[in-house]
């Protein structure tokens, strides 16, 4: 019996003429085109999933861990048991907050910050005629549970009329929304992958039908199921890889644009990306995307090839079961 040749030799032998004529069985136009279209859809869905994930993290861990305290008449001295003290209402509240368990940072917005906050309604002029309440941000350490109602009662006792707004409530709602969007995006990716499987299986079956005679002949000569399936699977994987690569390149500018639009909502997201310039080459444009999105985009072509390879292997092996 002949000695079993090495992997490279076997690969080269597989490329030689064995009558399967895979270039005709699986033409190099339609499949890459369809896979490219699906890769664009998958890239958009993955962008949605990544964006939702970033927003979910941001809203759950960022704004959600902060409480906003509003102290009216901040400069008025406080009174204790009917006696006026030397502390203003805002200072008294700040002092009380500094002792709060789990507080990581207490910050009173200064005049400029208040002005920036109110600018959309009151313009850029920061000389307000009305006395504004003091706005204090209370940042809690990660994982700290805060009883906002109890805190509001405690602060109202020190400075009556003080309001505590629990951002976490909104943060949790937004986080849940972002999680839902994330799940929907992943579902969309799964649907696109499912369609890809169906499409590749149908294309492979058409190729098998077109090359039935040579397949039956080399099967009768002793070609194993693995050999025939491997020949088809390598061809499909190559075409799917080309389609996936083309789709990724097509999707890149759209994703850069989307990430630009979404940037303000994910300001606290990890790895801030450099600004995109449309004259940049593709690999530099890729670097402007958030790292998770760039990684998923890079993984699209290999994933398409893997789906193509696995689907074709399964389809051809199932088809060959009809032969003895």
């Amino acid at each position: 019996m002949a000695e079993r040749p090495g992997l490279l030799t076997r690969w080269n032998q597989a490329r030689r003429a064995d009558g399967l004529a895979l270039r005709r069985a699986l033409p190099d136009r339609l499949l890459p085109l369809l896979v490219a279209a699906m890769a664009v859809l998958a890239a958009l869905a993955l962008a949605g999933a990544t964006g939702a994930q970033i927003l979910s993290t941001r809203w759950s861990n960022g704004a959600a861990s902060m409480l906003t305290i509003q102290v009216p008449d901040p400069e008025t001295p406080t009174t204790t048991a009917g006696t006026t003290t030397h502390l203003t209402r805002s200072d008294a509240v700040l002092a009380a907050l500094a002792d709060s368990p789990g507080a990581s940072r207490v910050h009173r917005l200064d005049k400029a910050e208040l002005g920036a906050l109110l600018a959309p309604w009151l313009g850029q002029d920061h000389d307000f005629a009305l006395t504004l309440p003091a706005i204090i941000e209370l940042h809690m350490a990660a994982g700290t549970q805060t009883d906002a109602t109890a805190l509001a009662r405690r602060l109202a006792a020190i400075a009556p009329g003080t309001l505590v707004e629990r951002n976490a409530e909104w943060g949790e709602r937004l986080g849940r929304l972002a999680d839902s969007l994330h799940s929907c995006a992943l579902l969309a990716v799964a649907i696109v992958a499912g369609i890809a499987v169906v499409l590749i299986a149908a294309t492979t079956r058409a190729g098998l039908a077109a090359r039935r005679l040579p397949i039956e002949l080399i099967h009768a000569m002793g070609a194993t199921d693995g050999y025939i399936a491997g020949r088809f699977a390598r061809r499909t994987a190559l075409l799917a890889f080309i389609g996936g690569l083309a789709g990724s390149v097509l999707a890149l500018p759209i994703l850069v644009l989307l990430s630009r639009v979404a940037a303000p909502f994910a300001a606290a997201a990890p790895a801030p990306a450099p600004a995109a310039d449309w004259t940049m080459p593709a690999h530099m444009l890729l670097a402007t995307l958030p790292t998770p999105l760039a990684a998923t985009l890079l993984a699209l072509a290999p994933a398409a090839a893997l789906i193509g390879w696995l689907t074709t292997q399964a389809t051809v092996r199932a088809w060959l079961r009809n032969l003895p």
Partner: peptide
């Protein structure tokens, strides 16, 4: 064909 299916050297 039969020789190539036996992986015989080219």
């Amino acid at each position: 064909l039969p020789l190539r299916l036996q992986h015989r050297p080219e």
